[in-house]
Amino acid sequence: MVDLAATSLHLLHQAFFGAVAAGGFGVLFNFGRRCLSWAIGFGAVALTVRTLALDAQWSLEAASFAAAFVTGALALVFRDRLGAAMETIALAGCIPMIPGAFFAHALLGFFALTAPDVPDLQATVFQSMQAFLRVVFTLGAIGAGLVVPGHLFRIGRS
């Protein structure tokens, strides 16, 4: 029971802050009010799906793909209401999943390799490469997850 409450609270936390982050970036990207509310909703959905998938022991990359796929598919479902802004709104919902911190970790690790004395060379190289690869795969997963529903939809229609 305590576990369920803690899991639900964690899920709510992630969904809420995913929504806030998507909304904040929506303002930065000059979204109008209506689009902003959609972006906030999609941010919450994306983070909910990703958190559920991570809790189910999926990798970050697979969880990000699932979240982006669901967001892209939802945008397609509501395409008549979203109109021309459909793709941008779906993308804004996925912005909180961009692995910026991993990217910075990777680059800082590479910077550290330029020091005259690197304390733990192998570990630094390994961790930096790992962070960099995770960035590449996670970005790839988000991009693919957003695009694939649209392509499947077009195949289904033709």
């Binding site: 802050f17 995913g18 909304g23 930065l28 909180p96």
Partner: peptide
């Protein structure tokens, strides 16, 4: 085409960073 006021964009961006921070 309207744009949000500069102060609102700055505040919203700060809020997004803080929310990102909580997610991290």
């Amino acid at each position: 085409t309207p744009r949000h006021p500069e102060w609102l964009v700055a505040f919203a961006t700060g809020l997004a960073c803080a929310a990102f921070g909580r997610l991290l």
